[in-house]
Write a protein that binds this DNA or RNA. Structure first.
Lengths: 238, 238
DNA sequence: GAGTGGTCTAGACCACAAG
DNA sequence: TTGTGGTCTAGACCACTCA
């Protein structure tokens, strides 16, 4: 809540969620919003761009900012949504089991992805995720020890992102994700309730800090019947 | 090539691809770019935001715009990439087979998604996609006939997006995609080379025009061993 | 302290939609 | 014709990085 435009964005999200503006209506014009929030038009436009990027509105030239039916879009997962955020959003009961938290010397392929020397010390963190009593997801994380020197089972059980961003003050900047389908491994069979499934959906993520260093590689393995990915794509406009 | 900032964006992309600026280097400062392109700083910043959104650079406060190693990110599929664009990008040989192009009365579920009355006339288009001689992808499209009155097999074999955007002048604005894994259907078995796979990866897309009307629903069914999805996510900044 | 990007302002002109 | 959003300008001040 520092930036003016983020503050305005948050305020408008609240209003939309409260039903002040409903789907199909238009928001007040940019000119009006300037008066309401006592600010310049470019600042209002930044706030509206955030709304647009998050699927709240669609801007139509000559008409205005049309409020979208966000229920149709459920939740935009594209982005850096963590398991905790996701489970919170869906109102599901969930549990995290930490199976392994060790320091290992990074294998060649992992280190290449993390842009560090072979044999750099890495945290290896293996967690299974339980929703409604079933172990659905197996998360394997590799994290650079030189960047995150201390890491405990308790922090891993809560949320890694919370710990890294809130407690350590590191800023996560962007991530690349890759989704493929692969055959199950022994690890999958050991830690997941597979219900006879032979394949899992694998999401590999590379997470980067705001100084462009890669610091984490995650492999998230999902039972296919419980996997869903939602992406909300826009055409480029700035 | 109308907008100044898009022109500058395209120019900078060219320079990066030609190796004028390589990974790890920084671009000239925003101030310098203002002089070079004889424009204002906000305009330069819009061009740089496009570069950032497309994974070419990362901006670091106090330092500059760092050029990223885009090979590491291959191609960002998140967005409205069509099969043709994708195949072009990957330099693969591909072929499209049109199996069905008919006018049908929309079933209830499809019409609800397309935000139109039940029994509205819809084009039903079924295509399989062949890469290196294997039929890997089955695309099923439902398109509102009132918006796209004429549609021929030839257009469907080329690129639907080309036809809609270039020939009809309609502007595609945004899309929602959902990815799930499902059991194979009889249609899959008829039109795909499944190689014994029992499940397919299903991408359901809802495509919207710039006036917020939904006009297309697509179900894209992929053989799991050939499926890959790459997503490039950023933190919100405007 | 000099240089970088991040935010913000108060204008301007344009393209487009709708009455 | 009026009102809308889209683009663009020429400044300003701030926060951050690095020598």
């Amino acid at each position: 809540m520092k930036n003016k435009y983020e503050t305005i964005f948050n305020k408008l999200v609240q209003l939309i969620q409260k039903g002040q503006y409903t789907a199909g209506q238009t928001l007040p014009s940019e000119h009006d919003l300037c008066s309401q929030f006592n600010t310049s038009r470019e600042t209002i436009r930044k706030a509206l761009n955030l709304l647009s990027q998050n699927g709240y509105i669609q801007k139509v030239r000559g008409k205005g900012s049309v409020v979208l039916d966000r229920n149709k879009f459920k939740f935009p997962v594209s982005g850096l949504t963590s398991f905790k955020e996701l489970a919170d959003q869906m109102g599901q009961e969930f549990r995290t089991n930490v199976h392994e938290l060790t320091l290992v010397k990074g294998a060649e392929d992992v280190c290449r992805q993390l842009n560090c020397e072979k044999n750099t010390l890495l945290w290896r963190l293996v967690r299974s995720r339980e929703i409604s009593g079933e172990r659905i997801i197996l998360d394997k994380d590799y994290i650079r020890e030189d960047l995150i020197p201390s890491l405990t089972k308790e922090e891993a059980e809560r949320s890694l992102y919370d710990y890294i961003e809130r407690d350590l003050g590191l800023e996560i900047s962007f991530a690349k994700k890759e989704i493929v389908v692969e055959a199950v491994t022994e690890e999958d069979e050991a830690f997941l309730d597979l219900n006879g499934h032979q394949q899992v959906v694998v999401i590999r993520s590379y997470v980067y800090l705001s100084d462009t260093t890669a610091f984490q590689f995650t492999e998230s393995r999902h039972r296919p019947d419980k996997f869903q990915f939602v992406d909300f794509a826009r055409r480029n406009k700035v």
